Simulated scan of single mutants.
Amino acid sequence: MGIGIRCLIGTVFLVSSFSKVAGRGAFAAFTTSIRDMGLLPRALVRPAAWAVVIAEFAVWALLAVPAPAPAAVGFVIALGLLVAFAIGITAVVRRGVRAPCRCFGASATPLGPRHVVRNVLLAVASALGAVAVFSTGALQVAGVAVAVPCGLLLGGLTVALDDLFVLFQPVRTAPAAARGLR
């Protein structure tokens, strides 16, 4: 179980960290999204953005280390970030702010309840992962062969959550009269 959770959380934070700094204007857009949330004084927005990015890079780097202690630290950092994100997004949603989710790069999707739920579930997974790194015995090849792809798949689905929601939204079409049909 621990290796699968490492892959899940590691994938989420790997994509999240790189998406905030890769490409022209990515970090500026992330910083702007934090400012638009209105949670921090203007002077703290840029330092907070850098702190988030550095912490996100630390999470996946620590989870990639095979030893239990660094992985546990990575899970604890992830847990702290995810709880902070869930609290911040809850405050933004309650105030009716329509700030875009820049969790995984450029997105026009405003923050909403599903982002809170996603972060809470990932926080629970991080807590379980922190415990699992110390409670697992010897790795079994068959277990690793199942856990790694499952963790990577769940991480990829988590990253693509907003796109999946858009993909499965009902198509809205104009009434026939508005399209010129009778």
Rank of each mutant, 00 (worst) to 15 (best):
L128W: 01
A176C: 10
G143R: 12
T31G: 10
T109Q: 11
F30K: 06
P113C: 15
C103V: 02
V116Y: 02
P110Q: 06
A84M: 05
A177W: 15
S17D: 06
P113M: 15
L157M: 10
L152G: 11
T136Q: 15
V15S: 13
W60P: 09
G156A: 01
W60M: 09
A125S: 01
R94N: 14
A58Y: 07
G25K: 08
G156L: 06
V144L: 13
L44G: 12
R42K: 14
T31I: 12
L111R: 07
R118D: 09
T158N: 08
P113N: 15
C103K: 13
V45G: 02
P149H: 11
D163W: 07
H115N: 05
V97Q: 11
A130I: 00
A160H: 09
G112Q: 07
A99Y: 08
A51H: 08
T173Q: 13
T11Q: 10
G23F: 05
R172F: 15
S16N: 08
A84H: 04
A142Q: 14
V93A: 14
T109F: 08
A51F: 13
G88Y: 01
K20P: 04
L44Q: 14
R172I: 15
T31Q: 14
L181M: 12
E56T: 01
V45S: 01
P70R: 13
F134D: 02
R118V: 06
L153M: 11
V133E: 01
R118H: 04
T109V: 08
L122F: 03
G137R: 11
G10V: 02
V148P: 10
A71Y: 01
G23V: 00
A29L: 11
L167R: 14
F134K: 02
A69P: 12
L181K: 08
A108G: 12
A147C: 10
A43I: 12
G88K: 00
P66A: 09
C103I: 04
V15T: 09
L40K: 08
A64P: 06
L164I: 03
A108Q: 12
A132P: 03
P110M: 00
G137Y: 03
G10E: 01
V141K: 15
A78I: 03
C7G: 13
L82C: 02
A72I: 07
P41W: 06
V171C: 10
S33Y: 07
A84I: 03
D162S: 04
V131I: 08
V52Y: 03
L157N: 01
V120R: 11
A51G: 10
T11H: 09
Q169A: 15
T31E: 10
V59D: 06
V159E: 11
A67G: 11
A123L: 02
G38T: 04
L82D: 01
F168Y: 14
V131S: 01
A132Q: 00
C150A: 15
G38Q: 05
A177E: 15
G105R: 04
V133S: 02
V97H: 05
L139Q: 11
V53M: 03
H115V: 02
I9K: 00
F75I: 00
D162C: 08
S16C: 09
L40I: 04
L157K: 01
D162E: 05
L111Q: 09
P110S: 02
R98S: 14
P175T: 05
A49T: 05
A130G: 09
V148H: 07
F134Q: 04
G105F: 05
T173K: 11
M1K: 12
N119T: 03
V159Q: 06
G4S: 10
I5G: 04
A26Y: 08
M1H: 14
I3C: 05
L39G: 08
P110E: 04
S16I: 06
